[in-house]
């Protein structure tokens, strides 16, 4: 299963970067979303892919099993997901403002605000 997960993450990364290197700002935004998904997956999986063992301690006082999913990357990724949304929306609006001022949609020409 590990090679498949590695390939999946690699493919999403590659798509994201390809999109981010396009000249259209809309594609930059799409690339941003893809890359944040890929990064979340990467951080999540490197801590180990554990099945059916969420880091929830039983309420009845039983101890957890030996194998349990690592809670720390989960906490990190959880906030990362929410933050990614905030950053994404900020990027969208910022790009929109830049577009309004520079009047080019082409990132190659969006070089200065003096136009």
């Amino acid at each position: 299963m590990e090679p498949i997960m590695a390939v999946v993450i690699g493919v999403i990364y590659a798509s994201a970067i390809y999109m981010m290197l396009r000249r259209s700002i809309v594609k930059l935004v799409i690339g941003l979303i893809l890359i944040s998904n890929a990064a979340n997956l990467l951080i999540f999986t490197v801590a180990g892919m554990t099945r059916d063992a969420p880091p929830l301690i039983p309420m009845n006082g039983d101890p957890l099993g030996d194998v349990v999913a690592d809670p720390l990357p989960q906490a990190l990724v959880l906030t990362a997901i929410v933050i990614a949304f905030g950053v994404l929306s900020f990027a969208v609006v910022l790009i929109r403002r830049a577009y309004q001022i520079v009047r080019v949609d082409d990132l190659d020409q969006m070089k200065d605000t003096d136009t």
Partner: peptide
């Protein structure tokens, strides 16, 4: 460049996944 990046990340991921790691969790 995108393929190179994706390939590098995939290898990295695979390399980490198949090794032991010490968690502070």
């Amino acid at each position: 460049i995108a393929t190179g990046f994706g390939g590098a990340v995939a290898s990295l991921n695979f390399a980490v996944l198949t090794r032991d790691l010490n968690s502070i969790s």
